[in-house]
Simulated scan of single mutants.
Amino acid sequence: MTVIAPPSRPPALSPSRASDFLQCPLLFRLRTVDRVPEPASSAATRGTLVHSVLERLFDAPAGERTPALAQELLPAEWAKLQEADPRVKELFAPGGDAESEGVDNWLDAASRLVSTYFTLEDPNRLQPAERELLLETQLPDGPLLRGIVDRLDVKPDDGAIRVVDYKTGRSPNPRYEGKVLFQLRFYGLVLWRERGTIPKMLQLVYLGDGQILRAEPTAEQLEGAERKIRWVWSEIEKAARTETWEPRPSKLCDWCSHRALCPAFDGTPPPIPEGAVEIRLGIS
């Protein structure tokens, strides 16, 4: 019998896990409740590496945050990432997600993403108040919300808050902007509930094509995000209590690593480990 260890922090709903459920309830279950291991992803790993470089860049004083420094940081952060996550080595092994690309080409692509950042912002003109900031807030009669913001800027003159999130992919087609705006408003809602201030700006920096998506949230929009989050959570509770985590086939299934466990592809999900729903979701 699988023994589920208690979490180090109380269960919470994050923007990515909420998006998982909206995409496919079964995907949410396999990732959040069962925690079925997934192979290393080339795109996700490269994103982690680039995020680390941009975080470390701001350790340097203003005036020294140059493209050359960022490129110098890349090998050291790459070494740290390989040490922290042994799965990374699987990327370039036979059958790995980046086998055909090779390590050198893969790192060159990461280097180009770092270079693109400097075409969008001048880090020497910024002094982030927070980096990799963990945010939490408890919704009354609702879930605990949790997320990590890449960067939080606060204007010294009026205290206006800007939330900045880096994306290493390409900016979305306007038809799909609603999904990313939901993530931004999720962060905006948590900040508002915790600090009593609505962020002035929510900003997504897309390094894949050098675009920036900005939104100035209103109280009405953040209240709408809260209603959507509450609805998502009510659906998660319903699925948990009835044990009906239905698959939701879409084009995104082509990139899913759990197809072998999905009934939509003649697979069978594993039994849910005893106690996993209560421990990992806080739902009894």
Rank of each mutant, 00 (worst) to 15 (best):
M1T: 13
V3T: 12
I4W: 10
A5E: 13
P7S: 08
A12R: 00
A12I: 01
S14Q: 02
R17K: 13
A18L: 10
A18D: 11
A18I: 06
L27A: 14
F28V: 00
R29S: 04
V33T: 13
P39W: 00
A40Q: 09
A40Y: 04
S52C: 09
V53N: 00
E55M: 04
E55W: 05
D59S: 08
A62I: 10
G63D: 13
P75T: 04
A76S: 14
E77V: 12
E77I: 14
A84V: 05
V88D: 08
K89V: 07
K89M: 10
E90F: 03
F92A: 01
A93S: 13
P94N: 06
P94L: 10
D97V: 08
D97Y: 08
E99I: 04
E101A: 10
L107D: 00
F118M: 02
D122A: 01
D122M: 00
D122E: 01
P123G: 11
N124V: 04
Q127P: 01
P128F: 00
L134E: 08
L135M: 01
L135I: 04
P140Y: 13
L145W: 05
R146C: 03
I148C: 10
V149P: 02
R151L: 12
L152W: 09
V154C: 10
K155P: 01
A160E: 00
I161M: 02
D165R: 03
Y166C: 12
K167D: 07
G169F: 06
R170A: 15
S171F: 00
N173T: 15
R175D: 14
Y176I: 11
E177L: 14
V180R: 05
L181F: 05
L181N: 10
F182K: 12
L189Q: 01
E194S: 03
Q211Y: 03
L213E: 08
L222P: 05
V232C: 02
V232Q: 03
E235N: 04
E237T: 14
A240E: 01
T242S: 15
E246H: 02
S257L: 01
H258A: 01
R259D: 06
L261V: 11
L261S: 08
P263G: 01
A264R: 08
A264Q: 11
G267C: 06
T268Q: 13
P269M: 05
E274C: 06
V277E: 05
E278S: 15
R280I: 12
R280P: 09
L281P: 02
G282D: 07
